[in-house]
Write a protein that binds this DNA or RNA. Structure first.
Lengths: 206, 206
DNA sequence: GTCTATACCCAGATAGAC
DNA sequence: GTCTATCTGGGTATAGAC
């Protein structure tokens, strides 16, 4: 994580993670578009063309950062598959997702929120977190569910994002964001479950 | 709002709003960074340098679009000043804010969410919506309030954003987003009021 | 395998003619 | 109010040094 440049040659993997680390720092500070490959390269004591040995292009660096979250999503998916579908499962799933959020992960979430055009392109090729979420959401809603119920389930699992984005520009810290995310997840889970059961009643009378 | 280009000379204000209208369309479709000034200019049958007569730079176009929302925020502020501080005022304020949201406003919200580095810079100079929100939030919380209570109030007023961002990439429509925003605003308002009164009890025992 | 030099293209922006 | 010409700087491709 150090900025100092070792005079000796770097090894491949190490250089790669140094690039990612510096890039995350710049992307958060100045934004992706306003960070030039030159900024990143110079901070590491190399030229910008060297970056192109490790990454296909600038966007590839951003995507690599964003995809660091995938492992935890897969773990959540795996855990969820083995759980029985009880009424409070949605709330427990949301809390589990919040629990495994580290400060580094929050920074990556900020990055994702700030670069939605790129997230959109990732979404089109099915490589984004949101697509991974879909599998989880499908556990809770089906084709008969109303749009409202589907949206409420998604929002229940997305309270970290909401809390994070509401906290932007304030002095509210990491733990308070997570605490509020937990509280709102519980409240929204109740709404979602209620919407779903009202869908069910609706369908019976059809 | 028409795309067709009139052969005769345009008048100043008219050209300006034509530029804004086309720019909004491109920024939503392709994103701000991937829209070139050339795209905008050619769609209007002019050259890119002509744009610089009407706007200082490309960012100025985006900022002008985003600030179209300000009027409604001021109206909300004015209304709120004349309301007595009763327990359900937060919920009613949130609903009122949701009620005055048009489809065009939602598009501008998508723009704001997608361009957070620019929003951040606007925030630093106090020109953004979030700063305007602060005055409203101050009506509900004071310096004694916990960070959690402050964040919950902010989230209560921000449910359109949350619902909108959760609906991205789905086929959920405008009215469903607003309906869910209303439901979650009511649930969050209750959490916020509860957090505030628990702060109060806390302060009494200090 | 790791990195540099260099050249290219395109986008944003400016100056000044009409 | 709009144009042409031009500048600057960033991302990219490639050849080749170590």
């Amino acid at each position: 994580m150090s900025n100092s440049i070792s005079p000796e040659r770097r090894s491949g993997e190490e250089t790669r993670s140094q690039i990612l680390s510096i890039a995350l720092k710049f992307f958060i500070e100045k934004g992706y578009e306003r960070t030039s490959t030159r900024d990143i390269a110079e901070a590491l004591g190399m030229t910008k063309s060297s970056l192109y040995y490790h990454f296909r292009n600038k966007e590839d660096i951003l995507i690599s950062l964003i995809q660091l979250r995938h492992t935890q999503l897969e773990e959540l998916q795996e855990w969820l598959e083995n759980q029985p579908l009880v009424p409070d499962l949605l709330e427990r799933t949301a809390h589990r997702w919040i629990e495994c959020t580290t400060p580094e992960r929050l920074q990556v979430m900020i990055l994702s929120q700030a670069n939605q055009p790129i997230m959109l392109r990732l979404h089109e090729t099915g490589q984004d977190i949101r697509t991974g979420f879909q599998a989880i959401i499908d556990r809770f809603v089906d084709n008969n569910s109303s749009a409202e119920a589907r949206l409420l389930v998604r929002m229940t699992l997305d309270t970290i994002s909401s809390a994070l984005s509401a906290s932007r520009g304030t002095d509210i810290d990491f733990y308070e964001v997570l605490s509020v995310a937990r509280q709102t997840a519980s409240a929204l889970a109740k709404l979602a479950v209620r919407a779903k059961s009202s869908d069910h009643r609706q369908n019976l009378t059809d």
